[in-house]
Write a protein that binds this DNA or RNA. Structure first.
Lengths: 127, 127
DNA sequence: CCGCATCCCGATTGATACTG
DNA sequence: CAGTATCAATCGGGATGCGG
C-alpha cells in the first residue's frame, strides 16, 4: 500500500499550536471554504459552485480536515438523493475573527507588497 | 533547463491579497523567520541556529522570498569574511501585529482542536 | 448527490558538494 | 561566512471513473 486512503489522514501532535493552524488554513482552500460558510450552511455542490474552481477531491479532502479539527460540522441527511450540509462550528466562527484582522492587513498592504516585488525585480534587471 | 535557478522566482500577480500573504507565510519557515527577527537583526547562521532544523537552502530561499516581498531587508557588509544581516522592515513589523492575534487564538484554542481530533478518531475507531 | 480510489505529473525540499 | 548548483526523493493536488 503506497497510497493510503484519505481516512488514514495522519494526525501528528504538533507541539507548536500555530503550526496546527497554519497547516490547516495555509493551504489553498481551507480559508476559502470557511469564508464561504460564514453566511450560513451549504451543501457540497453549493460549496463547490461558491468557490468556483475546486475539484471534488480537494473539496472533499479539505472539508474532512476542517471537520476533523472541529472548524466545521458535517451533517448527512439519510434521504434519496443524499444531502450533506456543512456549517461552521463556534470554533470555526471564532477563528474567523483574528483571521479577519489578517485579511484586512493583507488588503491594506497589498500594494506595498506588489511595489516591493517590482522594486526587487527592477534592481536585478539593470538594463 | 528543467530546474530554474532561485533567481527566476516566479512573481505572479495575485488578484486576491490574502492569497499573497498566505502563500508567503503559510509555508513551513517564513513565520518562524519573521518571529526570530522580531527581537532584532540577525546574521544568516545565527538565524539558522535560532530556528534549529532548517537547511541552508530553505533558509536562503525563504529569506529571498521575504526580502522580495518587502518583509525583511538584507544587508551585505563587504568584509572578509562576509557578513550579512537580516532585519524586519516596517512592513514586516506591522505584519506581526495581526499575526500575533492569530498566534494568540491558536494558543487559546489548541486544546479544543486537539480534542476535536481525538473525538473524530474515536468516532471512527469503534472498538 | 456525495465522495473515494487510482493514476499521474509538476512542485517542493533535503543532501551534498562547490564558490566568492 | 554566506550562500549556489545539482541530484534525487517525496508530496500535493488535478483528472477521471466507480460506488453508495
Amino acid at each position: 500500500m503506497t497510497t493510503p486512503s484519505d481516512d488514514d489522514a495522519i494526525v501528528l501532535e504538533q507541539p507548536c499550536p500555530i503550526r496546527d493552524v497554519l497547516d490547516r488554513i495555509g493551504d489553498q482552500w481551507s480559508l476559502l471554504i470557511l469564508e464561504a460558510l460564514a453566511p450560513g450552511t451549504l451543501r457540497f455542490n453549493a460549496l463547490r459552485r461558491e468557490i468556483g474552481d475546486i475539484s471534488r477531491q480537494m473539496l472533499s479532502r479539505t472539508l474532512k480536515q476542517l471537520e476533523q479539527d472541529g472548524f466545521i460540522t458535517r451533517t448527512l441527511y439519510a434521504e434519496v438523493p443524499p444531502r450533506v450540509e456543512y456549517a461552521l462550528t463556534p470554533l470555526g466562527r471564532s477563528f474567523l475573527e483574528p483571521m479577519q484582522q489578517l485579511v484586512d492587513w493583507a488588503e491594506a498592504h497589498h500594494r506595498t507588497i506588489v511595489a516591493a516585488r517590482a522594486r526587487y525585480r527592477a534592481e536585478r534587471e539593470p538594463a
